[in-house]
């Protein structure tokens, strides 16, 4: 792959929580407008890794990092990086749907508002566009003033995706977005990811290997804080190079 297509790249990334090392020397290139899946058994560091990209780990006390995470060629851990702008450009969807206890409309408008959009018409437009892009408009277009918490789990997760889209990010991080959802809702989110990748760079953490195989272009396999293998998804699943990758994929552990 050509370097001009690399949007995010981690280089020799190490991370410690207190004295426990959670990431060891992780280097991964993430291509633009592609879906990259991170797989591995729980506790392998895949969620920790994506939280380094938008610096969500900053919120955790005693978290220490060495190495680099380049976004458009600049290290996001450099001193003069504005994390607010960083997080605006790199959105995140969490494991458990976490809509705010507000109306559906206010949930979507939250991001644009904190970033300074006040005009009602502009907000209306963003809300509609985002909900349409998240394939939720048909279901909630008429009930925008209802509490977001009244929606079903799958709808809530698509709302959270719409909320992220409303901020107009370049990258979206998905942290096991379907682990709390039923199979039908999961399928809808996967369809959505396949559409979104035309406009966004997507990184998805998943413990579901079929999901990784279905939605991703590239896959990285993590084990005990190390990135064991990275490559085209097809290659990883059909001809893994490393023994431990093969073991994991064939279901021999994890």
């Amino acid at each position: 792959m050509g370097t001009e297509d690399i949007e995010i790249e981690s280089r020799n990334l190490n991370l410690w929580y207190g004295s426990a090392q959670a990431l060891k020397d992780v280097s991964i290139p993430i291509e633009k407008n592609r879906v990259t899946a991170l797989i591995g058994p729980s506790g392998c560091g895949k969620s920790t890794f994506i939280r380094c990209i938008n610096r969500m780990n900053d919120l955790i006390k005693g978290c220490r990092i060495t190495g680099k995470v380049l976004f458009e060629g600049r290290d996001v851990y450099e001193k003069d990086v504005d994390v607010v702008v960083l997080r605006k450009r790199i959105g995140m969807v969490f494991q458990k749907p976490n809509p705010f206890p507000m109306s559906i409309y206010d949930n979507i408008a939250y991001g644009p508002r904190i970033h300074g959009t006040q005009a009602k018409r502009e907000l209306d437009e963003v809300v509609e566009d985002s909900l349409k892009a998240a394939a939720l408009w048909d279901e909630v277009g008429g009930i925008l003033d209802k509490p977001a918490l009244d929606l079903s789990g799958g709808q809530q997760q698509r709302l959270c995706i719409a909320r992220t889209l409303a901020v107009k990010p370049d990258v979206i991080l998905f942290d096991e977005p379907c682990s709390a959802l039923d199979p039908i809702s999961t399928a809808r989110i996967e369809d959505l990811i396949n559409v979104l990748k035309h406009d966004y760079t997507i990184i998805i953490v998943t413990h579901n290997m079929q999901q990784a195989a279905r939605v991703s272009d590239h896959t990285a396999f993590f084990l005990l804080g190390e990135m064991i293998e990275f490559g085209e998804t097809k290659q990883i699943f059909e001809r893994p190079v490393e023994k431990s990758t093969e073991n994991y994929i064939t279901g021999r552990f994890g």
Binding site: N54, M56, L59, V84, V85, L86, R87, K88, G91, M92, F94, K96, N98, P99, F100, P101, Y110, G111, I114, H115, C160, R163, T164, V167
Partner: peptide, 22 residues
């Protein structure tokens, strides 16, 4: 819940915006 705070911070909200609005 910490989930709500994370949700807000991940959208690029500042600490105070998160506290005041969420």
């Amino acid at each position: 819940s910490g989930d709500l705070k994370e949700g807000s911070v991940a959208l690029g909200a500042t600490k105070w915006q998160t506290i005041r609005q969420v």
